[in-house]
Structures are given as C-alpha cells and as structure tokens.
Nucleic acid binder design. Structure first.
Lengths: 325, 325
DNA sequence: CTGAAAGCGCTTACAG
DNA sequence: CTGAAAGCGCTTACAG
C-alpha cells in the first residue's frame, strides 16, 4: 500500500488539508508544521498520487506533444528543445503519435476531447483551415511548430524563403537546370518549398520545367527517407535531359541522393534542407532550420498561454540560413 | 464542462454503474441497454476521464519508458519497436528522461515510488548490482533493454561478441594494429565491447596496446556523437604509431571518424556499431543490432509480465551480425 | 442483468 | 494558520 496524506496527517497530528497545503506550497502554513509534515512525509516515503491530484484539482499538469512519427531527425531535434524548456517547469510531457492512414483531424479531436493534458504542442501537423477552425473552438492552449495558423501561437520557418535561397544560390552560380528532389506533396512545408523554388526561377527568368521535379517511390514517412532520396536521384541522373544541380527538400533524402550519385559515379551540386547534425559530417550544403530553438520557444509560448489565457497570439517565423559546405 | 457518466446515465435512464460497465466491456450488460448507452455517449461526445478511472480502479494503464536521452539513434529505433507493439494494446506510453549529472538510481527510485505506471521499460540504463537488487524489491513489472540482470526480463545484444566479430574480421584480413574508437567507459556496452576487442586480440596472439584505445574529448551523451568520433579519429591519425584499422563503438561516431579521415586525406578501414539506417548510405561497415526488434520484444515481455506476474523471467540475448560495406 | 453505495486520494472553498 | 466537509468522475463488491 502506498502512503497517503491520511497516514501523514495522522502521524503529524494535523488534518489532511494541512498536509495537502504543505505539498502545494500554499504559503499560509506555519513554518513549524510545514517542517514537521515534510519530515514525516520523507520518512514515510510519501509521493502524491497524480491521478487523485488531477481529479481533485481538475488539473493534469501535462503537456501533450502531437506529432506524426517521432523517429525522425527533425522531430528529435525539436523535442530536444522542448525538453530543455520543460526542465525548468513542473509539467510532465506526453507524446501522441498520429497514426498514418487514419484521418489526423479525427485522431486529434479525440485526444482533445479526452482532456488528458492542459496544453498541446503540435509538431508538423498540417490540417485544413476549417479543421484548425474547429480545433480553435475547443479553446484549449495549443502551440504549433512547423505550421502556421493565425489563431494559434506558432513557431515556424519560412519554407518558401529557404527554398528560394537555395535555388537562387544555384542560379547565381551559373546553374540553369535545377532539379527539385521533392517529397509527398500533401506536406505543407514541401509545397512551400516548391513555391520558393518556382519563385527563384521566375525571378531569374528561367522557365519552370515540371520534369525537373522528382520524387522517390517510397512514400513511407511522406518520402522523407534516405531511400526515397536515393531513388529520386537515380531517376534524376538517368533522365534524358540531366539537370546540372539539385535542391532537395530534406537532408535525410539528400544523404540518400549522395549515395545514388556515388553509385553511378556522377555528381551534381546538391543542397539539402534542415541542417541535421550529420549534414556537417557528410559535407552536405543545406538550409538551416533552428530546430531546437523552435521546440524551446514554442514550449515557452505554450506555457505562457496556459498561465495567461488572453495574451496576444504570437507567430514566430524564423528565417532559414544557407549553409555551404 | 466535460460530459460525465452522470449525464449519460440520466439521459439513458440507467445508473452510472451500468454506464461504467458498458465502457468496461463487462459482458453482463444486456445488448439493448449497451447499445442505448453507447449511442447516447457518442451523441454527447463522452470520453472517460483517465484520472478518475485511474483513481477508482487503481490502474494507470500506462507504460513508462525510462531512458537517458531520447534524441539518439539507438533510442529512436528501439522506441519505434515499442510503439509498434503498443499499437495493438491499450496502454499509454510515457517517457521519462534520466537527467545526466544526477544519480540515475535516485531518479528512478523516485519515479517508481510515484507509481504512475504499471510497467517500466528501461532502455540503456546501467546500474550497480546492489541497485538492481533494490529495484527488484519494488516488485513492479520492469523489462530491460540493452542491459542484463538475471531478476528482470531483458532483451539485449551480446556486445562482447559484436566487438569480437569486428576485430576478428580485421585480424583475419591481415590487420595487426587495430584501434578501438571508444566512448565513455562507464557505459556497460562500451566496456563489453572493449572485452570483445581484447578477446579477439588475445585469441590471435596480438598483444594488447592501450595506446590504441582512443576516446574523443566531447563527453556529451557519453561520447556517442559525431563530434567525439571526429576528435578521436583525428588523434588516432596523428599518433606516432598509426593503426592500420579501426573498430568504433557506434555508427554515429564512425561517421565523425569518416569525416576526420577525409579532412586529413588519410584512410584506414573502419567498422562501426549499431547499423543505423544511415550506415548503408554512407557506406559504413558495421555490427548490426536488431534495435527495433529489441523494443518490440521487450515490450511484449513486459506486457506478459504485467498480465501474469509469476511467469518465468526471460532474458533474450541477440547475436549481433557483421555487415560489410 | 441492474442499482445503491462506498471508496479511490487528493483539493479547496468555507468557517473559525 | 488550521480543520471539517464536500466534491472531483470513476469502479466495484454487494444485493437483488
């Protein structure tokens, strides 16, 4: 049997209300009783039961991270930032994985209805406007990472700008036929990056050629895999009118692409996206996203909202940075 | 206000006990009332409150993963396996990060005392025998991944064997001065791999030379980083008596090591450890650990124990596999 | 098959 | 500063 506040109360000769107050740091308790209670609690090895606390106080003290799949680089880094921030708070962190194949909105709505957390951190969750609207009606603290919607606090990176930088750099270096190694087009960041790609071309009066947009066949993880990158690059290199440079929507795909180039002993300049830690070690040029910071500040702004419901909505948009290697 | 069983009970004209039974699939409820209750629950958008359920039933339906840091490759893959298994069960997954710098045993003991989960999955947690002994006294279901202790269910890989395979392969290929690119010596797997390294040397009558054991200066994450690998390889390559091959205790370090070799334009054969997905794409030979399977089966054996406390303890030990690239 | 009732371990106005 | 008491939303013997 676990120790309860009743055990402590009895031994300390006080009421359970007092014990409860001690643990809630309600400053009204006298120092002496506070100390006595604490000592006895330690002695008995007391730990408050989260479930009882939650039920009684109607607070869960939990933050729920909602994300597609957790085992990917971007997510890992963002999560690192979230954890860093949470270290200084007393919130517990839960993670919910949106199952692929099922409607994400439905899953999220269910989760929200369960009310198992006080605040929600959405990572790379992309919904329709009408769906965001509906979620907004739940009027529960939500912060978005890697997505933007005016009604919610958010931290994202200007994907259009990132792609624009990469492609512009190629153009300025004299390249004309620039391939876009893309991923699943349902992904919003992917679409934005395509925008940036087009914008750069247009600005330099290079006609858009849709044959230069290539995707791997592997659709697992929206195509953000080494394998998908490998496949796409193989197909790029074997196409009749070979491109002379390639912008790739993620580093992980770019690493697959590098391998493909090596395997057929051909090489064109490549720029990836994300700047995952590995990029530096495999000599990959890329567009840097401050992933860790994004996690950190999104968490901060979520907590701010949780403690102050009517603070103004903040939408932070980072500018990505071209890293040449 | 969230919908409760009271609301449903009233609307359905039954008692709350009946509503509760419907949701607990207690088969004693008549099909007609069951349907009626279900319909009303859906209509009202009812979701049971986990905290109330937990308090009343004294069950949490949670599994807690306890691990050092989550943002590393090994952890990610193992977690993938855990999640795969959990998909078919109704347990919720929580993750607790052991904070570096503080005593891990103390942290774990606190967590266990809180009793916030019904089963615990330890990933890469290495304690003293006396500490495992103490944890065993809590008589709560615990399964170990990447660690072995006779009293707990566990899934691990024979680290000594893995290192032995790698080093033996080098020796058979004619190499004599084989460096060991190591990591933090407090890590049990690292120590076991050192064992295997020594064993292979001994068997082939090659004297052990401790100058061939190299570690990076970066101790972050126990030295399992690209950076630490890079540093170590730089120092290896600049040592007076340069080795002619190198076995590295993790792929992530090996990738750093590859970069180091490139930077100084030297190259010696390298074998890593883990077989992370990237290894294939950077052409890294390695010792494969079935990380995903480990997560999957450890979870399975934990759940088995949770449902059947006195099943025999199972210690699964995988044999690693040499992958040449 | 169903209901009344006690209880899970806390929190928190309300008095004093 | 402290206590008595109600209540959080469920579950589960115990009767019937």
């Amino acid at each position: 049997m676990a120790v309860t506040i009743y055990d402590i109360a009895k031994k300390a000769g006080v009421s359970i209300a007092t014990v409860s107050r001690v643990f809630n740091k309600s400053s009204v308790v006298s120092t002496t009783t506070c100390k006595r209670v604490m000592n006895i609690a330690n002695e008995l090895g007391y730990y408050p039961q989260v479930y009882a606390q939650g039920l009684a106080s109607k607070k869960t003290n939990r933050i729920l991270v909602i994300a597609p799949i957790m085992s990917n680089y971007f997510f890992m880094e963002v999560l690192g930032g979230i954890q860093d921030k949470l270290l200084s708070c007393s919130y517990e962190l839960n993670i919910f994985n949106v199952t692929l194949g099922k409607d994400p909105f439905e899953q999220i709505e269910h989760i929200l209805k369960k009310r198992s957390a006080e605040g929600y951190l959405f990572i790379s969750i992309h919904l329709r406007k009408s769906e965001w609207q509906k979620l907004h009606k739940y009027s529960v603290p939500i912060a978005l990472i890697d997505e933007y919607y005016p009604n919610f606090d958010s931290v994202s990176v200007d994907n259009t700008e990132g792609a624009y930088q990469a492609v512009s750099h190629f153009i300025k270096s004299g390249y004309k036929r620039i391939a876009l190694l893309s991923a699943c087009a349902t992904s919003l960041p992917v679409r934005d990056r395509l925008e940036g790609y087009k914008k750069a071309l247009k600005e330099h009066h290079i006609p858009f050629d849709k044959n230069l947009i290539v995707t791997g066949n592997t659709l697992y993880r929206d195509g953000f895999t080494e394998k998908a990158g490998y496949e796409a690059m193989r197909s790029i290199l074997s196409s009749p009118a070979k491109p002379d440079a390639c912008f790739c929507v993620s580093d992980i795909q770019a690493i697959g692409a590098q391998k493909a180039m090596q395997d057929v002993n051909q090489s064109i300049p490549l720029i990836g996206y994300d700047d995952i830690k590995l990029a530096e070690y495999v000599g990959l040029s890329t567009i840097r996203q401050p992933m860790k910071d994004m996690g950190y500040y999104a968490t901060q702004s979520l907590i701010d909202r949780m403690t102050n419901t009517d603070k103004a909505v903040s939408n932070t948009i980072y500018t990505p940075e071209l890293i040449l290697r």
